[in-house]
Structures are given as C-alpha cells and as structure tokens.
Design a protein around this nucleic acid. Sequence first.
DNA 1: GCTGAGCCTGCTCACCTGAGCGAGTTTCGC
DNA 2: GCGAAACTCGCTCAGGTGAGCAGGCTCAGC
Lengths: 316, 316
Amino acid sequence: MTDNDELLSIRAAELYYEDDKTQDEIGTILRLTRWKVGRLIAQAKANGFIRIEIVHPRARRLGLERQLRENTRLSDAVVVSTAGVVDEHDLQRRIAQAAADYLTALRPVPRTLGISWGRTLYDISVQLGHGWATGVHVVQINGGVSLNSQPGTAAATAVSIAQKGAGQFTLLPSPAILERVQTKQALAADRSVAAVLQLGATASAYLFSAGQADEGSAHVASGYLTPAQIDDLVQNGAVGDIVGRFISRTGQIVDPALDERTFGIPLEQLRRAKTAIAVIGGQRKHAIAQAVVGSGLCTVLITDEDTARALLAREP
Amino acid sequence: MTDNDELLSIRAAELYYEDDKTQDEIGTILRLTRWKVGRLIAQAKANGFIRIEIVHPRARRLGLERQLRENTRLSDAVVVSTAGVVDEHDLQRRIAQAAADYLTALRPVPRTLGISWGRTLYDISVQLGHGWATGVHVVQINGGVSLNSQPGTAAATAVSIAQKGAGQFTLLPSPAILERVQTKQALAADRSVAAVLQLGATASAYLFSAGQADEGSAHVASGYLTPAQIDDLVQNGAVGDIVGRFISRTGQIVDPALDERTFGIPLEQLRRAKTAIAVIGGQRKHAIAQAVVGSGLCTVLITDEDTARALLAREP
DNA sequence: GCTGAGCCTGCTCACCTGAGCGAGTTTCGC
DNA sequence: GCGAAACTCGCTCAGGTGAGCAGGCTCAGC
C-alpha cells in the first residue's frame, strides 16, 4: 500500500509539475478524486521528492539562512546558491556580489567601516555599486602594506570602497606581521599609527574575510610567512586566519608569540562589535568558517550553500 | 531596469518557493503590489530560473516524452529521470523498472510477445511483477543459445517473463550467429525451427534492447564475435546491434554477409510491427538509440533523460 | 462478536493565484 | 513638438488549491 501510494504520488507530481495539469485533471487521469491528488502531491513534497531550485548567479538560500540564524549565534546570514556554479572563481564572485549587496542594503548605513584586505575584499570593492553609501569612513583594521606581486591591492580595496561610498579612507601603514615584537610595539606607540588603530576600534561596522591555513594562504603569497611556518601553525591546531591572526577550531589564538607581532585590532574587538560581517566561502574554508562562527567572531556571515550546510552539520 | 527587475524576480521567487510566503506577503516585504509579484515570479519561470525536479528512482520526464512523441516517429516514449543516479548500474535498473512498468500497463495485453535477450531484457524480467499478464505467449526472436559464462540467461529471461505473465514460452534453438551461411539456411529450413520464427513473425508486440558496437558488446562476451571483428564493423559504420544485427547510423545493415549468418527475425518485421518496444539507455548507447529511432525500428522507446536529449538534439 | 481508537475519504469554505481588461505612461519616429 | 504604438500598472473575476470537519472504514483487543 505505502509503496504503491509513493509511486502514485510521483505520478501525480509529474503530471502536476511537468505537465502543468490541474489536480482535477490528474484526478481524471489517475481515477482519483482531486483531494486525493492534492494529498499525494503534498506527500511527495513532504518526502522531499520535489526539489525546487532557483538557478541564478544571485540566488540565495533563504531556508539555510534561517537555519543559521536559529541554530548559531549569528544575527544574520546570507547564503548564496551553488546551483550552476562552474568553478571556484565563479563561486567567489557570487559571494563577493552578495557581500556588496548586503553592504548596500545595510541599515543604519555605517559611518565608519573597518575592513581587512585580501582577494575577497578586493572582489567586493569591485562589485560594489557607486553611491552604496554617502560619506562613509573606511579604515583598515589590520596591517596591509603589501609585499606581493600586486602592490597596492590592499590600499586599492579601501580606496575603492570609500570612493564608491562618497567618503574618505584611512590606511594602516604597517606590514601584516613584523619580524620583532619590539618593532611592532614601537610602531603601535607611534601617534599617527595609534590614531588609526583607535579609529578602527570605534568603527560602527566591520567587514572582513578569512584565509585558510595551507600553502595557499595569502600570508605565504605575500611573503610574511613561509610554507614551513604555516605547517607549524597547522600542527598546533590552526585552521585559518582572520585579520591576520591565526586561530584554532575553537577560535583561540594558536601562536601567541606570532600574534604579538601581528599588526591590527585584537580579535576581542570583533567579538564585542555590534556588526561584524564575515565573508567566507568555498570548500577550503569550511574549517575556518566554523571557527569564526562558533567562537562568535562575527555577527553576520556571508557564505555559500555548501559551507552553510557544513556549519549546520556541526552545530545542531 | 531590466537588470534590476531580474534581481527582483529572483528575490520574489526565493520568498515564494523557499519561504512559502504568499504573493501578498512578498508584496508587503518588497513594497510591491501582489500582481507585480505574480508577474515577477512568472517572469523568473519564463526565464528558466526556476527548476523543479522530481527526485525519485521511478520519476519520469513527461516533458521529454511529449517532445519525443511530437518530434520523432515514436508513437510513445518513456523517459526516466537521471536525478540522483549514482552509477551506470543504477540507471540501467531504473530503465528496466520503467520497461517492466510499461509492459504491465500495456493495453491491449499482448497475446504473443517477441523478445530478444541480454542484460537489459534479463533485468526487465527480474523487475516484472507476477501477474503482469494472464496467459501471454513469449517467443524468442533472435538466436540465443548462449555460449557465455552465465548459461541460460537468455532462456531464463523468456521463462521468467512467461511465468510471471501466467503463460508459456517458446525458445529459438539456435546460436546468435552461425559460422556458415549454409548452416543457417539449413537450420531455418528445419520445420520445428521455422515454426518458431513463424510464431515470432505473428507476435502482437516486440520487446528488445540494443547493444553498442565496441569491445563491451555482448557478442564479444558471448564469443560470437572477436573484438577485431567489431572494429571492422565500426569501420564500416556500425553503431550497434538490435536483435543481433549490426546497423549503421541510418539503420542499414552494415555487413550483409554477416547478417545472412545471423539468426532471428528480419529487421523489416520490426519496422512493420504495430508495437515494437525498444529499451535503450546509457551514455554509450546514444548512437544506436538514434539509429533505431531514426530508422523507425521501434514504435515505443524506453530510455533515460540524457539519451532522450541527445535524440532531440539530432532531430529538431 | 463487539467496541473504540485511529485512519482515510470526500466535502465545504475561504484563500490564493492567473487571465484578461482598461487607463495611464513611456518611447520612438516623424 | 506631436502622435501613435507599445508597454506597464492596478484591478475584476473566475478557477485552483489547502485547511479543517464529519462520516465511514479497518483493525486490534477484550
């Protein structure tokens, strides 16, 4: 009986969704009353046999967003669909687009916005539309005088976001990681530099991404760390970094000595922030995304479908 | 404008399909009238952004079936969904199941059913339910005294189909291909054998599969042909075989001499049949499926989604 | 054999939704 | 600058659909 009912519900669903027939017509075809047909279709839905997918680069998964809001500490979430994604780069562009959309719709409009830098942030700055804000002050919150092959990317990101928001920007004139603790402390003590950090501390919103801890880390590409050093960090439990600081699965600083030499606002400032938007997506960043969300380092997460599911699988 | 409308239609579709909101509620959220929302959703559908899929081993694609009926000579078609298929074997089972379902629902119930043999036919015989017919006469239509490692599969298929249909069966006591033409002619002239062929010629319905022309051909496994001979056939345009006979893309016999030695009803008999059900699916059988459908060798095709699409791409 | 609980069936009713229509608006060519 | 064509918008209306309800059926336990 149940088996036969299941098959019937599939036949009914086919006629309903594929052939656009009314439940009444289906009733005539299958020799059932239209109420029975309605119940069969409802049953097929309840059993998960009917999959409705929105295939569009800007499609979101509202169901997953709701689950994230309900089952994690996040106050808000944006989950982009992976349906029709062709490659990693395509996915990153979708996420950046979603972040740009979120920023544009953010209310109240942030007066001061603290940002990190990197590939993701740069993508967001490109996707942002002109006039997304009126008079925002963009401040870098971690060291970013880039040593890498695309000089100025960090600065270009801040400049672009500020310009498109008809505002001004303040760069943090420092490397991401200094070689000696003393240098870092001296730099932090410098009045002009301290003023930037102070400004970053008062930001009304933060926008940052995260890096995974492997040979593909931006810190390696930028020359601040060697692959061997990354390996060491991983051995000690690092799953990735945010605003330059490497953290473990539980959100703890992995290497306090290294962290002392890392220039930028402390993680505690993110944890206390009312609006901290993390933009983290892609297969390789599942672990760091879990660490960030699980330890309350952000209030808003912008991510992809797969990462969201991985997150929900951990925290039920 | 258009761009913005497209995005709006996606947002509306998300709320409608993912969040189960009414168009009126969506109107309130997006500050639109409920008619505008309805039009946006219709637009999203028309643009193909909404994909509704029925995920079930026995789900069919009625839309493709209709297209096949309209754009080919087929009088009927069954197309099984590939959504959620795990491997080739799974797909073949779905197709066999669909064929068994089709046979069970076939009206009028065939009095005499001509069948070929092979992996697919065997699968169908397994999936068939007891009592699918009452008093059917099953007749083999091509040579099938098997030489291979699973002796009796061909016979077992016929026996099983007949038994489950509460009927009798008649085997064709001959190899698929004979070594000499004279032997074949002598065998065909034998009264008891001729009677079987005669019975096959009067069948009220035929059920057969097809084999692809490559090293995986059942003829190689059965020992009737060598891989080298298959290669020769392919060189001469063979795309596969049905009821033991190798045909080209246009449905022509590829090697008349070989065909003379092949035992079974001639293809013309299938072409003239009122009900000839071909069961052909899987990536490797796209070419032979096209040949069979294109040259009118069957009136009914039971296949999978991908093969159906390949067929439709050829014949517009 | 009887009885009651639980399930299924067919129905009413209210709500949701798509087709079609006229008014207002934009756009394009002259 | 003007007029016509095309489009968009909000609406009416009828048809489609899901929630909730009463009656009947099945089945287990006494």
